Structures are given as structure tokens and as C-alpha cells.
Computed example of a mutant assay.
Amino acid sequence: MMFTVGQRVELAVELGLGLPVTVAGGADAGAGPDVGGGAGADAATRGDRYGGGRGDRVFPGAVVGSLGLAAGTRGTVERVDSHERQPDGAVREYLRLRSLLDDFGPQMPAASRARLAEEVAELEPGWRAFEAERLRVTVRVRLDNGFLVEGTDPAALRATADPETRPSAG
């Protein structure tokens, strides 16, 4: 389902969230990877997404706490983002060979045409998978309880018929 800005939605599934433990300033220096961005640090251990800074330590297996958002929690769509996936080498090769076969196939010798058709057939499953996931849509929703859920797959949401009903400040 395609959502629009301002539309009322509710969570179709329960969301469970947890963040890794980050200790500032390198406390307990013997444990956890250095998240200062050194040569061995990768995106999962740098901690920059969650505010970890230079010299902080991240403990990916440990969680301070968790937050559960129940299915049926309502909110309002604030933004809808489309992300177009870029084709990889196999997809580009499929497009090149398919074009070659379509444009010059009738003029090719039968053996060359058959070999080219075989190569296209081998690459076609990758092309179909790419086409199915070419455009990825994510949604940013401000829930009525004040939480913001960003980068949400639309499959985790369902539209509601409710008009916007926010608690009045009183």
C-alpha cells in the first residue's frame, strides 16, 4: 500500500527496539572494540549512528534496555521516501545481452543466437529479483505516544479510517 503525508496509520506488527551499550571515553578499556574509526573499525562497531564518539567502546551483544511498540499503536505519516536500487554487474550484463539479442538476434547465426539466448536465460532470475525490489519505499511516522519511527517498511503499517485525533494540550 502506498502511504501519503498526513495519513493516519497504525502499526500492523509489534516493534521491538534495542540499542547496543556504548561506554563514553573508553571506560573499561579492556572490553569492546574501539569505535574511534580506526583501520579495523567497521560500520557496526564505530557507534557513530548511535552517537558513539572517538574513544568510546561499543558492546554489540549487550543491550541496556528495550522498547516495545504494540501492534495497533496509531500515528501520522510525516514523510514517504523512495530509494531506487542501483543495478549490479549481473543486471547490467543481462540488459546488455537482452538488448543485443533483441536488436541483432534475427541477423545472427543460429548457433550464436542460441548461445546468447542461453546466457540471457541464465541471467534472467537475477533481473527478475532486481525488478521486484528496484524501488524500496520507507515511511517516517510520528506515533500518537510521541515516538518517531523512521525508515519503516510500509508492510509494518496499515491505514486507518480515523480522522487525526491528537490529545489536546489542556
Rank of each mutant, 00 (worst) to 15 (best):
D81K: 05
G146C: 07
V77D: 07
G52D: 00
H83Q: 09
R134V: 09
R54N: 12
A24S: 09
V120E: 06
G65L: 13
G146R: 02
A114R: 13
D81Q: 09
P154R: 07
E124C: 01
L97D: 13
T160I: 00
R92Q: 14
V63M: 12
G89D: 14
P60R: 02
L11S: 09
G30R: 02
V21K: 05
E14T: 14
R8S: 08
E150F: 00
P87T: 08
D103K: 10
G75V: 05
A43N: 06
A156F: 12
V137D: 08
A155F: 10
V64K: 13
L19T: 05
D103P: 00
R136P: 02
R54C: 08
A70T: 12
L143H: 08
A129M: 03
L69A: 04
L69M: 09
E78L: 13
A156G: 00
G52Q: 01
E131Y: 00
A159P: 07
A71E: 05
L148W: 11
E78Q: 11
E84P: 02
A41I: 04
A71D: 06
V137R: 14
S168K: 10
G61H: 12
G32V: 00
R85T: 15
A27E: 11
A117K: 07
G89V: 13
G89C: 04
T160A: 00
G151M: 10
E118W: 06
A71G: 04
E119P: 00
T4P: 06
E133P: 00
A41M: 03
P106K: 08
E93W: 02
V58E: 03
R74Q: 12
G25Y: 01
T45I: 08
T152Q: 10
R8Q: 11
V64Y: 15
R140P: 01
G38V: 06
D81V: 08
R92P: 07
T73V: 03
G16W: 13
G53L: 05
R49F: 03
A70C: 05
L101D: 11
V9Q: 10
A44E: 12
E131V: 10
D88F: 10
G37Y: 01
R113P: 04
E93I: 06
N145G: 14
D56N: 04
P109K: 13
L100T: 15
R142V: 11
A159T: 09
E150L: 03
A12V: 03
R136Y: 03
G72Q: 02
P109L: 13
L157D: 00
M108V: 03
M1V: 11
T76I: 09
G146V: 04
V13P: 01
R79K: 12
L116Y: 06
G68R: 15
Y50L: 15
R98S: 15
G105P: 08
G146M: 04
Q107T: 13
Q107I: 06
G151I: 07
G16M: 13
T76N: 04
V23I: 10
G6R: 07
L17N: 04
F104A: 15
P154V: 05
V9P: 09
T76L: 06
A71M: 02
A31W: 02
A62W: 12
A169S: 13
G105L: 07
L69V: 14
A121T: 10
R166W: 09
P167E: 13
D103M: 09
E124I: 02
A90I: 12
G6W: 02
E14F: 01
S168N: 11
R57M: 10
P167T: 08
T160Q: 01
F147S: 12
R46K: 08
D34G: 01
A24W: 00
G30H: 03
V9D: 06
